[in-house]
């Protein structure tokens, strides 16, 4: 080999070594400073601790859903309950989460509460790339190969995201280094948020609602996407097979949000008719629907933003669920969709 080539190979290897060490160090720093401060990760850590507090490893009421659930259901006011909601979650994650709880964590769940909001199955809200935002946690529930299929991304990119989350994460790392992260308080999966939507000006409220309309229904016009629907059906079937009761919740939203989606012609009745057709097919009459959609139209002070409850709203709402559950249970063991 010519001296030039030898020099190139030697220097190249040394350079690569220095580069790899630098990247590994930064990756480690990112995982500890950014990834482990993410709410999804902290929830998992707390859940692992909370597991020991469940009597006989039994949970009576387990709440699943997206941020609507995580903001709204405070298990402090609902006896023997836990909030398994995931921010920007969907039925794919709900299915795998439920399976993990029952099969890996050996928890006995009596009743699951599933979110059935207007955006729950929308194409915009269920874009493949948004599925499983935290691969460290998702990796415990299913294989990276399965995640790559569900995310419609290459296995290679999933591997990189799982093991080298620092790639593309420079801004978050810089931010966490120069500012102290504000950590949201958590209790049994519930997130405490303290903003007061009623304090905002009317135009700002409308801007919020428009922004949320875009997040929920924006560019993709599909109202019921195929993959989340399949996993919704799988979740119901899994619940039925494991003798877990199912209660559906329509979470409260602000008047501004409702006005926005009404103006944008987002169909409500037709949507629910189609969804409940699937539910009827699997569960028959064996489910309950708690419709709180318009419950707080006149209480903007209960909201953190246009469609999420703040900590006061969460308390009122959770107490309300608790009361409604008591009345359901009082009326007999056989739950029926007309009861609550």
């Amino acid at each position: 080999m010519r001296p030039d080539k030898i020099k190139f190979v030697k220097n190249g290897m040394l350079f690569l070594f220095i580069l790899v060490v630098t990247i590994l160090a930064l990756n480690h720093l990112y995982i500890s400073l950014v990834q482990h401060n993410l709410i999804s990760y902290r929830k998992e850590v707390l859940y692992a601790e909370d597991l020991n507090t469940f009597k006989n490893k039994e949970i009576e009421f387990a709440f699943f859903g997206d941020s609507h659930a995580t903001f709204a259901v405070n298990p402090l006011y609902i006896n023997n309950s836990y909030n398994f909601g995931i921010n920007h979650g969907n039925y794919i994650e709900t299915y795998y989460k439920l399976r993990k709880i029952v099969e890996q964590d050996n928890l006995k769940v009596d009743t699951i509460f599933l979110e059935l909001d207007l955006h729950t199955f929308s194409g915009t809200f269920n874009e493949p790339q948004d599925r499983f935002s935290n691969l460290e946690i998702a990796g415990e529930m299913l294989s990276l190969r399965e995640i790559s299929e569900l995310r419609e991304e290459s296995w290679w990119s999933i591997i990189m995201e799982r093991y080298f989350p620092v790639f593309g994460g420079g801004m978050s790392l810089t931010e966490s280094v120069i500012t102290k992260p504000k950590l949201t308080s958590l209790y049994f999966g519930w997130e405490k948020h303290t903003k007061d939507f009623s304090q905002l000006e009317d135009n700002t409220k409308k801007d919020y609602a428009y922004g949320k309309y875009n997040v929920h229904f924006g560019e993709n016009p599909v109202r019921i996407s195929k993959v989340p629907l399949i996993y919704f059906i799988k979740t119901l079937t899994y619940a039925k097979d494991n003798k877990i009761k199912v209660i559906f919740i329509k979470y409260p939203v602000s008047k501004e949000y409702d006005e926005m989606i009404t103006n944008k012609n987002i169909q409500k009745e037709d949507y629910y008719t189609r969804i409940f057709a699937y539910v009827d097919e699997i569960l028959g009459e064996e489910f309950v629907v708690l419709d709180y959609y318009g419950l707080f139209f006149d209480n903007p002070e209960y909201f953190n933003d246009d469609d999420h409850l703040n900590y006061i709203g969460a308390e009122v709402f959770s107490r309300k669920i608790s009361e409604d559950l008591n009345s359901c249970i009082d009326e007999g063991p056989e739950m029926n969709k007309n009861v609550c």
Partner: peptide
Amino acid sequence: VLILLFGVF
């Protein structure tokens, strides 16, 4: 490192 950390992939 800047490319890997701040790049949009």
